[in-house]
Computed example of a mutant assay.
Amino acid sequence: MTATQGVAHGASLSVRRAGKTFPGGVVALQPTDLDLPAGEILVLLGPSGCGKTTLLRLVAGLAAPDPGGAVLFDGVDVTGTPIERRRVGMVFQSYALFPNMTVAENVGYGLKVRGEPRAAREAEVGRLLAMVGLADLADRPVDRISGGQRQRVALARAIAIRPKVLLLDEPLSALDAALRERLRIELAGLLRRFAITAIHVTHDQAEAMAIGDRIAVMRDGRIIQLGTPEDIYARPVDPFVASFVGTMNRLPGRLVAGSTADEVFFRPEAVTVGPPGAGPLAARVVAAIFFGAHRRLTLDVDGHVVEADIASDRPVRVGDAVSLALDAARLHVFSEPSGRIDGC
């Protein structure tokens, strides 16, 4: 069965105690355990230098883990297997297309190298181009198509070899914001349609939420939290995850009634904005930004900045005194974090 028939043909993936230390004792990745069932899309999310790409390279076979680490496809240890024999597909930020080839030639290149008969190769390329919406551009040179179209060519080329695991290293980061937003939806749909086991690396939170079945949030060479997008957003395990994923407010516990913690975290949607005296926290409006369906307020609460969302038609102006009430069910209570929480 081929990818184009929409049947899961990817491998289950297991990573066991896989770490990476570079010369000089620089630890890029702490010993890591990870399991993906066949057909799952996992997003590695985190700031630059947190170990995302290093983990991807270990799975690909572009780098070897430290002694004792292992990578398994369908339960078979491939740690010592070179990349060309692992049957992994890769899509990079640069796409790495062959500029002297047409769209169809690029997609079929891997099949040609593997000795696929010409008729079968052309049929498979045709099916793939139809699925990614590029059938009409099969004979066009890749240097005459748009950035979004090149991204789809790179994806089709990677899928053409029927990889056990598909690895994507920030494939949308070189695109402008509007195109990136559209293509993240297209990419998520295509990956699920092909049902390939995939690992997608990004530092873009919205991209991670749109594409991943699960998200692994990374920092300092380790996975801090692994879960569904809903889990990561609604139930962060520590201040770093809480602050890195989405917009998060933070107040000292002494300002929040009933809290004995040093820090209380909450999303803008957990805040109810009322007239002065209606809620337990007094605030003043510092800024109000119109976003169409809602208005994002920036508020000063005893010298602390809080962001809250209100209906766009509410008559709130900069300088207004207001009160705030917090939804207790959506508060995240943590002890005072040690060290920084805003990056690697």
Rank of each mutant, 00 (worst) to 15 (best):
Ala8Ser: 14
Ser12Leu: 06
Ser12His: 06
Val15Phe: 11
Lys20Thr: 00
Gly24Asp: 04
Gly24Asn: 06
Gly25Met: 12
Val26Ile: 14
Leu29Ile: 03
Gln30His: 14
Pro31Val: 11
Thr32Glu: 06
Pro37Glu: 13
Gly39Pro: 05
Glu40Met: 13
Leu44Lys: 02
Gly46His: 11
Gly46Phe: 12
Gly49Phe: 13
Cys50Asp: 00
Lys52Thr: 07
Leu56Arg: 09
Ala60Ser: 04
Leu62Ala: 11
Gly68Gln: 08
Asp74Ile: 10
Val76Gly: 06
Val78Asn: 05
Thr79Val: 04
Thr79Tyr: 05
Pro82Ile: 09
Val88Glu: 02
Gly89His: 06
Gln93Ala: 13
Tyr95Gly: 00
Ala96Trp: 09
Leu97Cys: 01
Phe98Lys: 00
Asn106Met: 12
Gly108Ala: 04
Gly110Trp: 08
Lys112Arg: 15
Glu116His: 07
Arg118Ile: 09
Gly133His: 07
Arg140Leu: 02
Pro141Ala: 01
Gln151Cys: 06
Gln151Lys: 02
Ala156His: 10
Ala156Asp: 09
Arg157Ser: 07
Ala158Asp: 01
Ile159Lys: 03
Leu168Lys: 09
Asp176Glu: 12
Asp176Ala: 12
Asp176Lys: 12
Ala178Arg: 15
Leu179Tyr: 12
Glu181Phe: 05
Arg182Phe: 02
Ala188Cys: 10
Arg193Ala: 14
Phe194Gly: 08
Phe194Asn: 07
Thr202Lys: 10
Asp204Pro: 02
Ala216Trp: 03
Gly221His: 01
Leu226Trp: 02
Tyr233Met: 05
Pro236Val: 03
Ser243Glu: 05
Phe244Cys: 02
Thr247Glu: 11
Thr247Val: 11
Thr247Gly: 00
Met248Glu: 02
Asn249Trp: 01
Arg250Asn: 09
Pro252Cys: 10
Gly253Asn: 07
Gly258Gln: 10
Gly258Ser: 12
Thr260Asp: 14
Glu269Ala: 13
Thr272Arg: 15
Val273Ala: 13
Pro275Cys: 05
Gly277Thr: 07
Ala278Tyr: 09
Ala283Arg: 06
Arg295Ala: 04
Leu299Lys: 12
Asp302Ile: 08
Ser312Gln: 11
Ser312Pro: 00
Pro315Asn: 08
Asp320Gln: 11
Val322Arg: 12
Leu326Asn: 05
Ala328Tyr: 05
Val333Glu: 11
Val333Met: 00
Glu336Ala: 14
Ser338Thr: 08
Gly339Trp: 06
Asp342Thr: 09
Gly343Pro: 00
Cys344Pro: 15
